[in-house]
Write a protein that binds this DNA or RNA. Structure first.
Lengths: 323, 323
DNA sequence: CTGAAAGCGCTAACAC
DNA sequence: GTGTTAGCGCTTTCAG
C-alpha cells in the first residue's frame, strides 16, 4: 500500500503539497512543475488514496445508504439505477440493505447508520412504515423517504402522485364506457380521492373500493364476482396483482378484456408478457431513484432540499376494452 | 459525535479498556464491574463506534463491493438478497455498482476499488467479460466471479452448471416425445454439450442449435418456422426470451403448447403470468449470491476458498405438451 | 509557493 | 486488570 507520504517523498515535496494536487484542492498554491512531479510519482507508485484516512480526517465517508423491502423486487433495479447515476456522479457510493420484516428493518438501520454513512434513503414497505425509527435516525443523519408520502414526519421525500395514478386510470376506464369499477386502493386516501375526482365527470359511475392492498389477484376477482352487480373493470394496486387477476380469470373460464377489463399500476415489464398485454399506469421508478439521490445529496451539503412529487402516466396496452 | 475516549472518561477507565469491552475483544482482561460501567456509559452517551477510525487502525473496511450489469434486471434482487444475507451476518456491508457498458465497467471498478473495500464480487455481462481488468484487480483485492465460468483466469467463481441446464431441459422434452428441438445456446459450449448428452439416449432426436444468445423470442420463432422441418419444441436462453416467444406465437396465430412447446431458463417469476405458464429450468440465484458472498469472505480471511458449482432444477409448469 | 505538525477516532502492543 | 501511547493515512492550519 503506497501512501501519500510515499508519493510526496518520491516527488521531493511535503505531504500537504501532494495532498493539494492529488485532490485538486489548492492547485493554485502549487507550482506547475511540482504538480507534474507529484502526478508522475503518484502514477509510478500506483497510488490510491486511502478512503478511511480521508473519511477520518474530513468527517465524511462519501457513502450513502439505501434500505429496501424485498417486496419491491420488480422495480428495485430501476430505482437503484437512478440512485447510482446521481450518487456516482458526485463520487458517492451506495451501500445497500434489504429488509424482510420490521425487526430486520430496525436492525439494519442501526447497522448501516453505524457505518458512518453520510445519509440514508429509506424505501418503506408500507405507508408511513416505521416513522418513529426514521425520525430518530433523521436526527443522526440526513434521511430521504422514497415512494411514500410522509404524513407528519417532516422527513423530506420523493413520491409519485398517488391521486393522479387513480385519476388517470379511472378517467381512462370511464372514457372506455365503464361505469362499475372495482378499485383496490388499500387505505390510501390519495388514491381514493383521485378515483373519485375522475368519476365526478361521468354520471352514474359506481366506484367499488377494495381496501386490502395486499390481496392477491385471485382474491380480488372472487370479491368482484360476489358483488350484486360485478364490476366491468378492475383497477389493481400493482401490476403483479393485475397479472394475477388475468391468470385467475383464465382459470375461472373468463377472458380479459372480453368479460371484464383490467388496468394495473407500475408499468412493470411483466405486463408485456401477459395475455392480453397489460394496460397500466406507469410510475417513474428511475426518476424516483434519481430525485431521491439528488435530494439526499442536497441535504448532505446542508441545503434544505424540497420534496419531489413525480407524475405517473398512462401506458396503454390491451387489457381494457370499450364497453 | 461521542467518541471512545468520552465513554472511557465517563466510565473512569482508559481508552483501551473501553475498546476491549465495546468490541468484545479482550473481555477476559477486564473486570466485571468495569465492563458494566463501560457499557452503561456507552449507552448513556449513545455511543457509536466510528467506522472510519476503526478501518484506518485495522486496515480493513468491512465493506464488500458487487458490480452488476443492468441486463441482469430480473434476477438481480435474488442475488443481492443472497449476498446481503451472508455479508451482513459477518457484519460486512455491500457497496453496489451497476454498469451499462465496458467503459462504465472499468471506470466503476476503479472507483469502487479505490474505496478500499475488502473484496469485490463481479457479475460479468457475458462469458469471460473483461477478464484482464478483473485479473489486475484481483491482485489488489480478493475477487469472486459470479455467474460465469472463468476460463483461465484463476479467479475463484460461483456458477450454475450450464451443461446440466440444457441436459435437464432436453431430457424433459425428449421424455415428452419431442424429437426436433430448437436450442438457443449462444456460443456456450457447455450448454451445447449438455443438450447433446441428453439427446444420445433417444435415437432420431434432432437438435437444432441457434447461436444468437441475444436474439429475441420473435426472431427465434421466425427462425424456427423457416426450417425445412420446424421444431416441435424450443429451449430458449432465458425466460424472458421464452415469454417473448409465447407472445410472438400468439401474434402469429399459433398456440403454445398445442402448436409447439417452449421451455425457458431461469425460473423467473414472470413465468407465472404468461399464458400458458412457463416451464423452465430454475437457476438458484439466491444461492449463487449466498455462495459468492461466502467465497469472498473466505478469501478475505485469507483462506483459499474453492469454486462453487450449483445445480439447476426443473420447474414444471404448462408450456410443454406431449407430442 | 511549500513544509511541519496537529489532529480525526480507533486498535493493540506494552508497561505498570 | 488497567492505563499510556504510538501509529493507521489523510487533511488542513499555520509558519516560513
Amino acid at each position: 500500500m503506497t501512501t501519500l507520504s510515499d508519493v510526496a517523498k518520491r516527488a521531493g515535496v511535503g505531504v500537504s503539497t501532494a495532498s493539494y494536487v492529488i485532490n485538486k484542492t489548492g492547485l493554485h498554491k502549487v507550482g506547475a512543475e511540482a504538480q507534474a512531479r507529484i502526478l508522475a510519482a503518484a502514477a509510478e507508485l500506483d497510488y490510491h488514496p486511502n478512503i478511511a484516512g480521508r473519511a477520518l480526517a474530513k468527517g465524511r465517508t462519501f457513502m450513502a445508504g439505501a434500505i429496501f423491502p424485498t417486496v419491491m423486487g420488480s422495480f428495485t433495479p430501476e430505482i437503484l439505477q437512478g440512485l447510482e447515476d446521481v450518487l456516482n456522479k458526485a463520487s458517492y457510493s451506495l451501500i445497500l440493505c434489504i429488509y424482510n420484516s420490521v425487526g430486520e428493518f430496525r436492525e439494519k438501520c442501526r447497522m448501516i447508520a453505524d457505518k458512518q454513512i453520510d445519509g440514508l434513503i429509506v424505501i418503506p414497505a408500507t405507508q408511513d412504515f416505521e416513522l418513529d425509527t426514521c425520525l430518530k435516525l433523521n436526527e443522526r443523519m440526513p434521511l430521504v423517504y422514497l415512494t411514500q408520502s410522509c404524513k407528519n414526519g417532516h422527513i423530506p421525500h420523493v413520491r409519485v402522485d398517488g391521486g393522479m395514478i387513480n385519476f388517470l386510470a379511472v378517467r381512462y376506464l370511464i372514457e372506455h364506457g365503464h361505469r362499475r369499477i372495482a378499485i383496490q386502493c388499500g387505505s390510501d386516501a390519495q388514491r381514493i380521492q383521485g378515483a373519485e375526482r375522475a368519476a365526478q365527470n361521468a354520471a352514474g359511475t359506481r366506484l367499488m373500493f377494495m381496501r386490502e392492498a395486499m390481496a392477491g389477484g385471485r382474491h380480488l376477482l372472487k370479491w368482484g364476482l360476489l358483488q350484486p352487480e360485478p364490476p366491468t373493470a378492475y383497477l389493481t394496486y400493482s401490476d403483479t396483482t393485475a397479472a394475477e387477476l388475468v391468470v385467475a380469470a383464465y382459470e375461472f373460464g373468463l377472458k380479459v378484456p372480453d368479460d371484464f377489463s383490467v388496468i394495473g399500476v407500475d408499468g412493470n415489464p411483466l405486463g408485456e408478457y401477459t395475455c392480453p398485454k397489460l394496460t397500466s399506469i406507469r410510475q417513474p421508478r428511475y426518476e424516483q431513484g434519481f430525485e431521491a439521490g439528488r435530494l439526499l445529496l442536497a441535504r448532505i451539503e446542508g441545503k434544505e432540499g424540497k420534496d419531489v412529487i413525480l407524475q405517473p402516466s398512462l401506458l396503454e396496452r390491451k387489457s381494457v376494452a370499450v364497453v
